[in-house]
Amino acid sequence: MSSIFAQRRQKLLALKALRGTPTASPHAVERCPSCQGEFTRRELVAGRYVCPLCGHHYPVGAYYRLSMVLDKGTFRELDEALASADPLEFPGYDSKLEQAQGRTGMNEAVVTAVGRMGGVKVAVGAMDSRFFMGSMSAALGEKVTRLVEYAGKNRLPLILFSASGGARMQEGILSLMQMAKTAAALEQFSRRGGLYISVLTHPTTGGVTASFASLGDIMLAEPGALIGFAGPRVIQQTIGEDLPEGFQRSEYLLEHGFLDAIVPRGQLRSTILQLLRLHGKEVDQDGK
């Protein structure tokens, strides 16, 4: 019986993972924004949206991200219906929200779920930079907090993939308060012995960096991701000089002591499985 549900879930996730990715022909020519090299769409998709020539990591959607790391058929979404209520009645916000929801098929910029990795039950969340640039809304903060609390209550490892342009300006101070809310939930989770693996993806900036994204027991990042609190443009304006090559990229953070490892997309699942094993979880043999 459960396998029927599992199959349905898998189909649903696969469907959602496809949503938002352009439906170009597999033979269409893609040009890498980083190295300008050319390859077919099929090659790009086969490589999980990593440039086959230079290793540039394209941003990917939240459902696709989760489909890459979870065991097949184990994805069960949590709090899918939570959405922003436009708390400040900010001019134009409700119609923009509607557009973003229509375009992405998501209600918010984060997908939270429970699933399995190598058979180990995990609480996972992935942010999606296509939805309001992954900005922190009250609904996003609420979903993340509920996920952390769910992981705490069920004693599950917690894995969050961050991608954020910063605060949701249209929610003003309530966006800011989500930093305290999520950090507080994680502190409780941590004090009860919970394992939190934070994976930073391009870009992770602003309030998300200054709250839940930086509080992992294990800090991972995809190669070349922009990670910082202040945006590069603001910093440039403040100091009045050019920023060094590679500033605020994953490699820079690793060098400055803020990451445990930089992990290419293709190795993320196996790295997380290793970390689960190292934290005493019984990972299936086939979950290598």
């Binding site: 959405a83 922003s84 209520a85 708390p87 929801q101 009250a138 609904a139 609420e142």
Partner: peptide, 14 residues
């Protein structure tokens, strides 16, 4: 802080 912004959240139809 747990309830900050709870009025800013609603349930969308699925």
């Amino acid at each position: 802080f747990r309830v900050m912004g709870s009025s800013a959240v609603r349930k969308e139809r699925l």
